[in-house]
Design a protein around this nucleic acid. Structure first.
Lengths: 198, 198
DNA sequence: CGGCCATGTCCTCAAACGAGGACATGAAAA
DNA sequence: TTTTCATGTCCTCGTTTGAGGACATGGCCG
């Protein structure tokens, strides 16, 4: 089965500093960071507040006090995760295609990973939809000229989401091995076809 | 394995409690149909064998006897769901784009819906990846000329998956309302950019 | 016509989940 | 220094999940 976080190893992967006693802000931050990791790995449903608390080195009950509920925590995590994301549109498509196909670390696309793995939950999907439209999609829309900018921005995000789904979540072999560089021009052309002003 | 369906009509959506006699084949069929619906609605994790059994009008325990486990049932459902799916590639892209954007019923894309909603589970993802590569992706690949046909087929499927994710699962408003017909040419052009022989 | 095995139904179990209230404690305020 | 309240910890509860074994029953074969 998947690895369980041991109670004796409470430190987050990016938080190597142990001496934190009573500091609400630092605790909140540690919980948010751990939650972001766990949500990205397991999705909303499979991520448990016990896992998150253990990874943050914090009692699970504290999450309820700070964020109200698991759903409240998820909302804040999604806010953070979509703050800086991969850009698309004219002038960005080559980099986006490369980033999606050949780069191995999906670090900046953290938000999308959370979205893909949490899509099965209706409440989580609604939270992500609102945040996506209000922040990320808005930025992409602003970068587009021509008619139907909002719809085309949604298409661009959809294309990138689909590639990431097939590659990182389903683990499709055609997108995991071989000459992925050869596929970059195709994906780039597809993005250009949507973002180019007609 | 008798082929008759004497004890009832083919099960349909929201079938409450049909009178079931003793017919193993019909029972299997009813369970598979109900499971396909429930998996498409809720995804692998949230779908319970109790739900499936209730919708099929069958004791939940019977599922364990017929299919071994929930995972075994899922495997058979995925086999069925990808049997006939939306076609992509040269000559199909306009119809595919229309089907994804303006058609409201995602009935033929049943398999993709299951895939999108079950992506969070690693075991389910592996089952779908295998089936997708072995059946659906293979057909799309055969319809493509030129180099890197397998990778480009994966890209085509990825694009369509992404659109369906944004539209049907996340419920993005830019892809749910308004003049979706105006977006069809963009999506079609994107698909063409991938499937056209360079 | 009668036996019998496939078919269907019921029970339970162990584990994991989210959420909540009572209590200890340390760090800042007076 | 003393007070005090935010901060952190532990407990339980009720629910739901997937899975398994024992028993009733009915349709087909002998």
């Amino acid at each position: 089965m998947s690895e369980r976080v041991s109670s004796g190893q409470p430190r987050s992967t990016s938080d190597p500093v142990p001496p934190r006693r009573r500091d609400a802000a630092a605790t909140r931050e540690a919980v948010l960071l751990a939650a972001r990791e766990v949500f990205a790995e397991l999705g909303y449903d499979r991520a448990g507040i016990r896992d998150i608390g253990a990874r943050a080195g914090v009692d699970a009950r504290l999450i309820g006090r700070y964020f109200g509920s698991k759903e409240g925590l998820f909302t804040e995590v999604v806010d953070l995760a979509f703050e800086k994301t991969m850009m698309m549109g004219p002038g960005h498509n080559h980099q986006a295609a490369r980033s999606l196909l050949v780069d191995s670390t999906p670090e900046p696309a953290d938000g999308m990973l959370i979205a893909l793995r949490s899509a099965s939950n209706e409440r989580a999907a609604a939270i992500m939809r609102d945040n996506l439209e209000r922040n990320y999609q808005r930025v992409v829309t602003d970068g587009l000229a021509g008619p139907d900018a909002a719809g085309r921005a949604a298409l661009l995000i959809a294309v990138c989401s689909g590639v990431q789904l097939m590659r990182d979540i389903l683990g499709n072999r055609a997108l995991a091995t071989g000459d992925l560089d050869k596929l970059v021009p195709y994906l780039e052309a597809a993005l250009d076809a949507i973002s180019a002003t007609p």
